[in-house]
Write a protein that binds this DNA or RNA. Structure first.
Lengths: 335, 335
DNA sequence: CTGAAAGCGCTTACAG
DNA sequence: CTGAAAGCGCTTACAG
C-alpha cells in the first residue's frame, strides 16, 4: 500500500485506456443504448482493468440530480421504527436510492441538525417521522428548497404534505371495545405523553369506546408516562396502588405493555389472569411475550413501504396533489 | 410554489448580497477564525436571509474529502443488529459523519451491490458485518481504493483489517458450563449454520465445556437451522422427538431461543421447568420474555461503538497498525 | 460516435 | 480580507 493517497481512476483515464472519447466513456458508464456493443465492451474492459469506480457524487452535482434519500426516525432500537425502516429501505433500494439514516430520539435539536446535514448532502427527498413539537418552520424549510418530503406516523396539523399513518383513534377504540366485551368495566389507559398528537388520538378512541358502551371513564385511571418500557413499569405502580383499581389496562404501546407486565409481576400480580392487558403496535416481540399479548397492529412496515412509495412518486412529480394514506388498524387477539 | 425547479442559492449569491468576495463567504461557511466578527455576521445574515444551504457534496468533491460513512449490517429488524447500528450511529454522529445504511439479509449479491453504491457515493469509510461467504476480492476492492474498512461481528480469516467482535467461543463455553453446573448431562446445541464462522466458534466452546467437565457430546443433539426465530421453532422439533432427549438446550442465539420456547410450548413442554434453555446475545427482548431467558451478552451496542471508533481513527490515519478488538462475553442469569 | 467547451458549487493557492 | 484563475469528476449541448 502506498503511503500516498491513491487517486481515483477517472473517466478520462478510462477513455484514454480504451481509446475512446470521454463522452463515449461517460455514455457507457450510464448504460446508454446509443453505444455499439463492441465499443461498450472495450470500455467496460478498461474500467474493470483499471478498477474504475463511478463517481455518482460528481455526476449528481453536474446533472443536478440526487440518488440519495434521508429517513429520519425516532429510535432504531425501537422495533416499531426498525420495522418501519425496513419497509422504507426495501422499497427505496428497489428504485436505486441509497439511504441516509437519522435518529432523533424525539429531540427537536437532533431533528434540526439531521435535516440540515441531509439537505447539505443534497438528498433527493426526506421521509420524516417528526418529533412531537415539530415547528412549521422546520418542515417549510424543506419545502422552500423544493425537496420532496413525506411525513410518517405523526401528522402535523394544517400542513399540506404527503402523509402515511394509521387511524390510531379507531385502533384504540377497537382495543378498548375488546376489553369491554370481555366484561371489563374499569379500564386504565397507561402511558404516553398528553402533549403528543399520538396520545390524543388514542385517548379519543378510549373515550369513544366507553361512550358507545354506556360506560364512564374514570380520569384517575389515565396514567401518563414516558413512552418507554421503563415508563410502563413505573406507570403501572400508580395502577397497582389505586384505591379502586381497574381490572384491565389499555396501553399506549406494546413497549408500555411489556413494561407493565414486568411491573405487575414484581408486585405479585399475574398479568393476563388478575389483570387484562392490551397493547398497541404489534411489534415482533409480542409473539414471544408471555402471556401472549393481545394488541392492535399499527403496520409499521407497511407504513414505511407506503411512505417510500409516496416519496418516490413525489420525486418523479413534485407538483402532484398531496396524498394522505391512513391505514386501518387490526386487532391481534392472543389469549 | 413555482412550477420551475428552484435553484439552490449559491455562495456566489451570498457573497454578492453581503458585498464580500466568494472566498470570504466560503471561509465564513467553513467557520474560519480568520474572518472578522463584523464580516462574519454580515455574511451569516445574508445566508439566512437568502435561505442558503451549504453544498457539502460540492465541497467534498473539490477538497477530496468525505463526510459520510457506510454501515452494512445483516438485518435492521434483528435487534442484535439494530443495537449495533445504534452504537455506530451515536458514535459517528458525534464526529459529524452522516450515515449510509445498507442491509444484506446475508446475501452476497446484496452485499456487493451495497458496497458498490457506497463507493460510488464516495463514503469516507465503511463498517461491514460481512455475510457468511464473503470473498477476499470483495474486501480487497475496498482496500485497493484506500477506503478505510472496519469489520464487525464476523471475522474474515487471514485478512488484515480492523475488527471488532466478541470471544464467541468463550461465550458458548460459559453458557454450557452454567448448564453443566446446574446438573445437566445431556445438552443440545440448537440453531445456526455449520458453514458460518460464528457457528464454528460457538460449537467449539460447546465442546470445550463438555471436555472440561469430562462429559462427551452426543452429536445427534447438535441441530442446525436457519438463524431465525422460525428456525428455532422448527429445529426444536428434532429435540422433542429425539429418542433420548436432552434436559437442556444451548441456543445459537436469543432469536433461536425464542423460537425454541414457542416450539416447546406448542408441544406441551414448559420451558425453564421441563427443559432448561440458555440463549446468546442478550438482545433487549430477553428482558420481556417469559420465562426470563438466561443468556450470554454479546454486547452488540458496544461492538458498534468500538467499530465506529476504530473507523474514525483509521480515517484520520490509514497507515496505522490494524487493531482487533475482542470483547469478553458475560453471562446474564435470569432464573 | 468524437472533440472541444462550458458548467454543477464549491475549495485551493496566490498575488495583492 | 479581495479577486481572478484553476480544478474536483462528471454531464450537457453541439458541431462534425
Amino acid at each position: 500500500m502506498s503511503t500516498k493517497k491513491r487517486h481515483r481512476v477517472t473517466l478520462m483515464q478510462v477513455a484514454e485506456h480504451a481509446g475512446v472519447s470521454r463522452a463515449t466513456a461517460s455514455l457507457v458508464a450510464r448504460k446508454s443504448p446509443k453505444i455499439s456493443k463492441d465499443t461498450r465492451e472495450k470500455v467496460l474492459a478498461s474500467m474493470s482493468e483499471l478498477g474504475y469506480v463511478y463517481d455518482r457524487v460528481a455526476a449528481n452535482l453536474r446533472s443536478q440530480t440526487s440518488t440519495t434519500i434521508g429517513i429520519i426516525i425516532t429510535d432504531v432500537a425501537n422495533t416499531f421504527y426498525s420495522e418501519l425502516l425496513l419497509g422504507v429501505h426495501e422499497e427505496l433500494e428497489r428504485h436505486g436510492y441509497t439511504v441516509f439514516l437519522g435518529t432523533t430520539f424525539d429531540s427537536v435539536d437532533n431533528q434540526e441538525r439531521l435535516i440540515s446535514t441531509m439537505l447539505e448532502h443534497r438528498v433527493g427527498g426526506i421521509i420524516l417521522c417528526p418529533v412531537s413539537s415539530t415547528s412549521t418552520e422546520t418542515v417549510n424549510r424543506i419545502k422552500t428548497l423544493d425537496i420532496p418530503l413525506v411525513l410518517a406516523v405523526r401528522e402535523l396539523p394544517n400542513l399540506d404534505f404527503d402523509y402515511v399513518g394509521l387511524d390510531y383513534t379507531q385502533g384504540a377504540q377497537m382495543g378498548v371495545e375488546y376489553l369491554i366485551k370481555k366484561g371489563h368495566k374499569r379500564i386504565a389507559f397507561l402511558g404516553g405523553r398528553p402533549q403528543s398528537s399520538t396520545w390524543h388520538q388514542r385517548i379519543k378512541g378510549f373515550y369513544q369506546a366507553h361512550e358507545i358502551a354506556g360506560l364512564t371513564v374514570d380520569p384517575s385511571l389515565i396514567i401518563d408516562s414516558p413512552p418507554t418500557r421503563e415508563g410502563g413499569t413505573e406507570g403501572v405502580k400508580n395502577i397497582i396502588q389505586h384505591p379502586n383499581p381497574p381490572t384491565a389496562i389499555f396501553c399506549f404501546s406494546d413497549l408500555i405493555a411489556f413494561g407493565a407486565i414486568i411491573g405487575l409481576r414484581k408486585a405479585g400480580i399475574t398479568p393476563g389472569e388478575e389483570m387484562d392487558i392490551v397493547g398497541f403496535d404489534n411489534v415482533p416481540e409480542t409473539e414471544i411475550s408471555y402471556p401472549p399479548l393481545t394488541t392492535i397492529s399499527s403496520f409499521s412496515k407497511q407504513t414505511g413501504m407506503q411512505a417510500a412509495k409516496l416519496l418516490h412518486e413525489r420525486i418523479k412529480d413534485n407538483q402532484k396533489e398531496t396524498q394522505k394514506i391512513i391505514l386501518k388498524p387490526e386487532i391481534v387477539i392472543r389469549d
